[in-house]
Design a protein around this nucleic acid. Structure first.
Length: 419
RNA sequence: GGGGGAAUGUCCCGAGCGGCAAAGGGGGCGGACUGUAAAUCCGCUGGCUACGCCUUCGUAGGUUCGAGUCCUACUUCCCCCA
């Protein structure tokens, strides 16, 4: 392979974004000529995107930085169908209202990473509901459906997985790839979009779009996928104890987001710095070279940079400071997550289990779980291990106006009397 | 159309002579060791007004003192014959 000429592909390559490309050289030529309008599609299945989506968002970012025009496609239409890729069961159908609400909630994420506007390289956001909901079934079958071979569709992983595992695949879902392919062709026609990017699980869907484009007479289209995020120990990335690592601050606080990055495994630090921060490569190389416990410094940089990108520098600094006090000084950081309690409750005394449970601190999902954790020695009040599950917390337990509840080593909540 | 088999703890895989809150994994969580890492070892892994009570084995009934386990019907999936 010859050296890449475009900044776009060179950066993506050196930072580790590229998993597969339909025609690297062809795309390189287009990008070098500044003709790279590209899109990534996002389904509106939840009120927020999560770290898994971040990879493709970063690709849009670099695309714009290198003179390309990014398009964020909201799947207002396709979400009504449901993508079967990588799932062994059909997702519950969302109502149109839910989808719209999710879409609104997701939109804000992008402005952190790409600049929207009317200019040639300004990003734009479109919703495929715009064209998909207007399709006429018979016309669509004749114009688009005839280009799809069922024989071939059956060979795609997303479909094969279901068939092999003897799971149901509804006709509705079976159509998803056709709609996604149609999206690509449509964006090519409307906006001169020549490239679709996405996770490696989207490869089949994207390639279908390229084929359809060719048959419908668009210009040559390209596919570019990024690797699926896993940790170096092989686990699927993007889960914390609390669930998915959401990008919206109201779904996952900047503090928890910072902690997620801080807890990166050693073996992932360099890779994540390249993927999820904008730091220059030589700086990353320096951080990556740190050995042993020093690598914690690199993890802090990763957490700071990633959090600053998503939630702003201020939120990142605050999280870093809270972490420093809590973990390095063992001091009480007032900025830890806080739960307010009516003073009357404290006057009467509150059971430890209740305090930790779903009603207050929400550190544990049930009383039974809280009880178990007491037995396991996993709960602490003001850094003292809870030994008696019937212990009661009162005003007298407050230190500096709060009661510090800890679950395990890493999760802390401050109980503060409401005024 | 006929015959045979399967569905188990709402994370997954999977055992289960009629006494079962249900073996064993994986995953997850906690503890120890560390560096807020990995690996390793130990413990836990349905809920509650908790030495007891409640809800769980595809769905709905039935037999029985008692059913995941037996019977009937239904649903979905797989295999064989036509």
């Amino acid at each position: 392979m010859t050296a890449l000429r475009s900044d776009f592909l060179r950066i993506l390559t050196e930072r580790g974004f590229i998993h597969q490309c339909s025609d690297l050289e062809g795309l390189d030529a287009k990008a070098a000529a500044g003709e790279h309008v590209a899109y990534v599609g996002y389904d509106c299945t939840a009120p927020s995107l999560h770290v898994g989506h971040l990879l493709s968002i970063m690709m849009l970012h670099w695309l714009q930085q290198t003179g390309g025009k990014p398009i964020a496609l909201m799947g207002g239409g396709t979400t009504r169908v449901g993508d079967p890729s990588g799932k062994d069961e059909a997702r519950k159908l969302l109502t149109v209202e839910q989808i719209d609400a999710n879409k609104e909630s997701i939109k804000g994420t992008f402005s952190r990473f790409i600049a929207f506007g009317e200019g040639a390289t300004d990003a734009m956001m479109v919703d495929n509901a715009e064209w998909l909901t207007k399709l006429n079934y018979i016309d669509f079958l004749r114009d688009v459906g005839r280009h799809f071979s069922v024989n071939r569709m059956l060979s795609f992983d997303s479909v094969k997985l279901r068939l092999d595992r003897e799971h149901e695949l509804s006709f509705l879902e079976f159509n998803y790839m056709i709609l996604q392919a149609y999206d690509f062709a449509e964006l090519a026609k409307r906006h001169g979009c020549i490239l679709q990017m996405g996770g490696s699980d989207q490869w089949g869907n994207i390639v279908n779009g390229i084929d359809l484009g060719r048959r419908l007479g668009t210009q040559q289209l390209y596919a570019l996928t990024c690797p699926l995020l896993t940790t170096s120990s092989g686990a699927k990335m993007g889960k914390t104890a609390a669930g998915a690592v959401w990008l919206n601050a109201d779904m996952l606080s900047p503090w928890d987001y910072w902690q997620f990055w801080r807890n990166t495994e050693d073996g992932d630090v360099g890779r994540f710095l390249r993927l999820f921060t904008l730091l220059p490569m030589d700086e990353i190389a320096r951080l990556e070279a740190l050995q042993g416990a020093e690598i914690n410094e690199a993890k802090k940089v990763l957490a700071n940079e990633a959090t600053a990108l998503m939630h702003g520098r201020e939120a990142a600094d605050e999280a870093a400071e809270t972490a420093r006090k809590t973990f390095e000084q063992g001091a009480l950081a007032e900025t830890l997550p806080t739960v307010e309690v009516p003073p009357s409750v404290l006057d009467a005394g509150i059971g430890v289990l209740t305090a930790f449970g779903p009603e207050y601190a929400k550190l544990l999902p049930s009383m039974s779980e809280a009880r178990r954790q007491v037995k396991a020695g996993g709960l602490r009040v003001n850094d003292v291990v809870v030994k008696d599950e019937r212990a009661v917390l009162r005003e007298g337990d407050m230190r500096e106006g709060v009661i510090k509840l800890s679950f395990g080593k890493k999760r802390h909540v401050l109980l503060r009397p409401a005024r």
